[in-house]
C-alpha cells in the first residue's frame, strides 16, 4: 500500500486554479521530489497535505487514513512533519527548545501534572531530551544547542528546521525547498542528509525543490507540475528529458506568442 495517496486534488483561490486534478502516490521509503516552475502549485500541494488549504475536490490518504477529516494540528500526530519555504522557526527560543517543540505529539502528561511537575513529567522530559539529542547528533548541531535562533545564520536555520521536523519522529518528511539559499557546500551536505534521513531514520521524504542537481542525485521518483497540473512523473532522468517538462521550463515557440 502506498504511504501517501493524492487523488484528483483540485484547489482554487477565487477564480485562480492552483491545482487541477493532481494525482500521485508516494511509496514507503521513497525519496519523492516535486519540481516545476514558480507558481506551478508545488507549495500549495504541501499546504494541502498539511491541511492549511482545503481542496475543492479530491481525496488525500496517508497510510490508508483520510487526511481530509483531520484538523491541521492533527496531521503531525500521524507522523507527517514538514519544513517551510521561508523558515518558520520559533525565533526567540534556543535550538534545543525548538527541537523539543517537535516532541509535542509524544507528550503524555496531563496539564495539572505539568503545572506541578509530577515525577512522571520529569521522566518524560528526560526522555524527550534524550530523543532530541539524537537529532542534534545526527545533524551535528551540538555547538549551537543553546543558541537563540535569531542569531543563527540562514543555512543553520534550515538545518534546525529539518531537525525540528525530525524530532517529531516522522514517517513522512515534507521538505519545502530545502536547498534554496544554501551555499554549494551546504547543498552538498544536504544531499547526504536527505539520504540519511531515509536510510537511518526510516522516514519517507517528499520534497519540493528547484535545484535539479540535488533532485537527480537523491530522488527515486520525480513529479513535474506546471500550472497546477501533473505533466510528468517517473525517474529523474526520464522527467528531465520529458518534452513537456522542457517546454514548461524553457517555453517553446508555440508558447511564446
Amino acid at each position: 500500500m502506498s504511504l501517501l495517496e493524492v487523488d484528483g486534488v483540485t484547489v482554487r483561490f477565487g477564480g485562480v486554479t492552483a491545482l487541477e486534478r493532481v494525482s500521485f502516490a508516494v511509496e514507503p521509503g521513497e525519496i519523492f521530489a516535486i519540481v516545476g516552475p514558480n507558481g506551478a502549485g508545488k507549495s500549495t500541494l504541501f499546504n494541502v497535505i498539511s491541511r492549511i488549504h482545503e481542496p475543492e475536490e479530491g481525496d488525500l490518504r496517508f497510510a490508508g487514513e483520510n487526511l481530509l477529516r483531520l484538523a491541521p494540528s492533527e496531521v503531525a500526530g500521524l507522523g507527517i512533519a514538514r519544513t517551510f519555504q521561508n523558515i518558520e522557526l520559533f525565533e526567540h527560543s534556543s535550538v534545543l527548545q525548538n527541537l523539543l517543540v517537535g516532541r509535542h505529539r509524544h507528550r503524555r502528561a496531563s496539564i495539572p501534572a505539568q503545572v506541578f511537575f509530577a515525577p512522571a513529567v520529569r521522566r518524560e522530559e528526560v526522555a524527550h531530551r534524550a530523543a532530541v539529542e539524537q537529532v542534534i547528533d545526527f545533524l551535528d548541531l551540538q555547538p549551537y544547542r543553546d543558541r537563540t535562533i535569531a542569531g543563527l545564520p540562514y543555512g543553520l536555520r534550515k538545518v534546525v528546521e529539518v531537525g525540528r521536523a525530525l524530532a517529531i519522529e516522522p514517517r513522512m518528511l515534507l521538505l519545502d525547498e530545502p536547498a534554496s539559499g544554501l551555499s554549494a557546500e551546504e547543498s552538498g551536505d544536504l544531499q547526504f542528509r536527505i539520504k540519511d534521513i531515509r536510510d537511518r531514520m526510516g522516514a519517507t521524504v517528499l520534497m519540493v525543490e528547484h535545484d535539479m542537481r540535488l533532485v537527480s542525485a537523491v530522488s527515486d521518483r520525480v513529479l513535474a507540475l506546471a500550472d497546477g497540473r501533473v505533466i510528468a512523473i517517473g525517474t529523474p532522468a526520464a522527467v528531465q528529458s520529458h518534452p513537456k517538462v522542457i517546454e514548461a521550463y524553457l517555453g517553446t515557440e508555440a508558447a511564446v506568442p
Binding site: 522557526l89 517543540v101 505529539r105
Partner: peptide, 24 residues
C-alpha cells in the same frame, strides 16, 4: 519547562509552524 510552556512560546513565535508540530 514542560510541553505546555513550549506550546505557548510556539504559538507566540509562529502559529503556522506550531500547528505543523501538532499543537492545537
Amino acid at each position: 519547562r514542560t510541553p505546555l510552556g513550549r506550546a505557548f512560546v510556539a504559538i507566540r513565535d509562529s502559529e503556522i509552524s506550531a500547528q505543523a508540530m501538532g499543537i492545537n
